[in-house]
Nucleic acid binder design. Structure first.
Lengths: 345, 345
DNA sequence: TTGTATGCGTTATCAG
DNA sequence: CTGATAACGCATACAA
């Protein structure tokens, strides 16, 4: 930190391994070995001199330099639809936790629900040469970008990278999924069990695989019970979508609908508010159930019936799967939690 | 992708600039210039040949290599207390958005409420040589780590890095804050205005500056009104903390308390559930107000009175402040939103 | 055990 | 406008 004429300090650059070596009076190679690699092959006296020098200079190895020297980075790239969504932030928390435990750095990109943006992200992500790419909440069904995305990721994998998809099965990559179909079916049976017979489903566009699976699972759970076909309302995969669908349902006259299944909790919670704003009381005039069991499910009124998904664990599993190099899939169990938003009737 | 004897493919490494240059029949220097640098200085024919070659090979420049060649990276390091907390995830969303608009990559680290961990993170972060370090939700008041953290960040800045703190003023770095004191004072006056006179405050340990500011601001807003000193309950800065404090308040007999101010919304929402679980109805038996106005504030029942903080904007501002290189602070306005959790009495 | 020399992929300098 | 070539900071094969 050299003082300048005006009293400020010159932007001195961080110490390099070279500086450490000089300070310790050894060669740069010895310094390198002492600090990370084979500690056995360096005389302990020199080793401690080097460590002391590094500490004195507050040296931190330049990760980019290490990356190009070693030919591999220590970063994990995570792409999500929206960080602010509790579903994704919970998953991200799991990913970050597992990564930090392995000394890896997590970079984060937001696809914002656009397949094109997602593709572009993955494309430029490769510039980071990350060890792992984790894609959560993709919506690549049917769109023309699907093949491009797969090709991009496949090529990345060929170059030694690991790919893990979250909730996006039947892509040729390791995947961690939750049992969306089974959970929704179980939920349907639970609702039948407490007396509901006429349903509406608030679902997202079918390109969103998660939404479709949950929708289909719900129908499957109803099969054979003899209840009428649920009314299906397509809307956004967000709180606003749930709110809007609820308003729409009330406007069109919902008399015959006894309970609504929204394919995720943020939609369900939005729907509850939508119903209430329309003068329909959730849990009294109409039952409401969601999926994910996010934290706030127990803080809304009435508490929301949902299907518990271990979201943080999803993130952890994704990292574990990636690090184990597994191509096999991990499927996490889910469980129905019936609360007061669907009282017996 | 060379085919191997067993039919699998060898882990071929990604194409380098060298490959692109060879493919285009130019030197590596020309290829480099054509792809990023001074496009003017390369014959347009060659430029397009290079671009074509890059596209054909699906070339992505190795960011680490660029970083060491150019002497600077394009990454922004963000450290938060907890990604899953809606307060931080909203801020993170803003940071990521602004960063992506500037072509920067965001890396994320989680301090988990530990000052030691935070210090350690910042220390190792320097290895990334990020352009910017943004620290959100620090709790470094009083602890011995404070000076170490400041020194670490100061040194980083001396080396040309930019530091921005969020909600952590009186540190010698650029800061984006919200008007915690003013907002809380305004809230206090609003509650007085609708008839409340006896309060309790659920606050976090005073090392958390945000909590202390809001607490003090609330008291300041009450000053001169002649109302009795609010009851102060210290608890965790989390939903669980709010829940616990509510239970505790009910147990000790809360008859004289008319309204509770919890220093953030997740605490307030936890408190509402805590009250309800204890048989006390929020908005009827007791008023509840929070701070932040997170999304779910309108989805709980009764809707939560709060102080609106533009959280996403906080993240955006932090990035803007960092990129503009400003040392000056940004202070974002807040505004009280009175809802049904504090009905007139 | 240590040091020298080379290479990693890219940019930048400097002659042609 | 182009092409060698020298950095950048670090790891490592090779030689001593």
């Amino acid at each position: 930190m050299t003082a300048m004429a005006d009293g400020s300090t010159a932007p001195s650059s961080p110490p390099t391994l070279h500086d450490v070596a000089r300070e310790a009076g050894v060669s740069i190679a010895t310094a390198s070995r002492a600090l990370n690699g084979s500690v056995r092959n360096v005389r302990s006296e020199n080793a401690s001199r080097v460590r002391a020098a590094a500490a004195k200079l507050n040296y931190e190895p330049h990760l980019s330099a290490q990356a190009i020297a070693k030919g591999s980075t220590r970063t994990v790239a995570l792409v999500v639809r929206d960080v602010a969504d509790p579903y994704f932030s919970a998953i991200a928390a799991g990913v970050v936790q597992a990564a930090e435990e392995s000394g890896l750095i997590v970079t984060m990109a937001v696809a914002d629900g656009s397949p094109e943006r997602e593709l572009e992200i993955v494309r430029t992500l490769r510039g980071q040469r990350p060890r792992v790419i984790i894609v959560a909440g993709s919506r690549i069904e049917g769109t023309g970008t699907r093949d491009a995305l797969v090709e991009e990721l496949a090529e990345y994998r060929t170059a030694g990278g690991r790919v893990v998809m979250i909730s996006q099965r039947d892509l040729p990559f390791g995947t961690v999924t939750v049992d969306n179909r089974g959970g929704a079916a179980e939920l349907a049976r639970a609702l039948l069990g407490v007396g509901y017979r006429r349903f509406a489903v608030f679902h997202a566009p079918p390109e969103i695989r998660t939404s479709r699976d949950r929708h289909e699972g719900f129908l499957a759970g109803l099969a054979g019970s003899g209840v009428p076909e649920p009314l299906a309302l397509e809307t956004g995969f967000t709180r606003a979508g749930g709110y809007e669908a609820a308003r729409r349902l009330v406007e069109r006259g919902f008399e015959d609908v006894e309970a609504v299944f929204a394919v995720n909790d943020v939609m369900a919670i939005g729907a509850m508010t939508g119903f209430r704003d329309a003068g329909v009381v959730p849990g009294v005039d109409i039952g409401v159930a969601g999926f994910d069991d996010i934290e706030s499910a127990v803080d809304v009124l009435p508490p929301l019936t949902s299907v518990a998904v271990p979201l943080r664990e999803v993130g952890l599993s994704a990292m574990r799967l990636a690090l184990s190099g597994g191509e096999q899939d991990a499927r996490l169990p889910v469980g129905v939690v019936v609360r007061e938003s669907t009282p017996p009737r």
